[in-house]
């Protein structure tokens, strides 16, 4: 069971910010060291062992095991004209899986991101579609609609935003949402989570946006503002480990995506940061 978790790719640094001296951090509770060689190429070691490494979406990715392939792709992110936003990491005292699940939650917008991503009384989550796509082994939610007062840094006033959510990796999620300046395209907003321990994680948000007006710093600040509103909530969620078995919580229709995510994790034996038996 542990083997499958070890074989995934995990984000451990921003490639552009990596130094020669590097940094000590944790991955799945194992101490690792991430640094740049003289050439700038990243090196990740664990107890003297050199780990697999690659750079994608601005981040350094590594694995404690033997990954089957490349880091998942986000084809839209390669479209010309997008601004690639390296938001930087934030540490959170919560299960890495809870950080992903919160990212997938639609119902919290009016209460946690009040007057930005949601507002009262526009709290209803309309029915949306969820599926576990077996051909690509990913969880998807589509046809998600939500009224948002300020959907993005580039949004002028409130709009009904459309979303698609995608979970291509147990600790990563990609969100596609209505792009205010370009109605025909989707903005790409991701959350890459580095599991430190079962109850702590480092979160690396990254975005590929169409926005010709905001400065890079303004876009970073917008996303940090949003994520830090989540952080104080995440640190108070109980139980700390994400329950994968039903019994402890009563989900509603708005939680369909969360249920699919938990079911998918359980099917793959992804238990780092999870609890299996209902208390």
């Amino acid at each position: 069971m542990i083997a499958t978790m070890q074989d995934h790719w995990y984000p451990v640094a921003l490639a552009s910010k990596l130094t020669r001296s590097g940094r000590d951090t944790l991955l799945l509770a194992q101490p690792i060291h991430v640094r740049a060689e003289a050439s700038g190429a990243p090196v990740v070691t664990c107890d003297g062992r050199v780990l697999p490494v690659l750079v994608k979406f601005g981040h350094v990715w590594t694995s404690l095991g033997t990954p089957a392939g490349d880091v998942f792709d986000i084809p839209e992110a390669h479209q010309p004209g997008r601004r690639l936003v390296e938001v930087g990491s934030v540490k959170v005292r919560c299960s890495p899986l809870r950080a992903v699940e919160n990212f997938l939650d639609i119902a919290h917008f009016p209460f946690v991101h009040t007057d930005v991503l949601g507002s009262e009384p526009h709290t209803e989550v309309e029915r949306y579609e969820v599926e576990i796509r077996d051909d690509v082994n990913e969880v998807w939610a589509t046809k998600v609609k939500f009224f948002q007062p300020q959907a993005a840094r580039s949004a002028q006033g409130g709009i009904t935003t459309e979303y698609m959510y995608r979970v291509p990796n147990p600790t990563c999620s990609v969100l596609y949402k209505t792009c205010p300046p370009r109605p025909g395209e989707w903005d790409v907003i991701t959350i890459f989570v580095q599991p430190l321990t079962e109850t702590t994680c480092e979160v690396w948000p990254w975005m590929a946006l169409y926005d010709d007006d905001s400065t890079m710093t303004q876009m970073i600040h917008f996303q940090q503002l949003i994520f830090l509103q989540d952080r104080s909530i995440l640190e108070n969620q109980l139980p700390a480990l994400l329950p994968l078995d039903p019994g402890q919580e009563i989900p509603t229709r708005a939680d369909m995506l969360s249920i699919a995510y938990r079911r998918w994790l359980k099917r793959h034996g992804y238990t780092f940061g999870a609890q299996l038996v209902a208390a």
């Binding site: 921003l14 910010k17 390296e86 938001v87 930087g88 990491s89 400065t215 890079m216 710093t217 303004q218 970073i220 600040h221 940090q224």
Partner: peptide, 10 residues
């Protein structure tokens, strides 16, 4: 005037 304190260390 936003300053990129993190991660940019502006």
């Amino acid at each position: 005037r936003p300053v990129d304190f993190h991660p940019g260390a502006e």
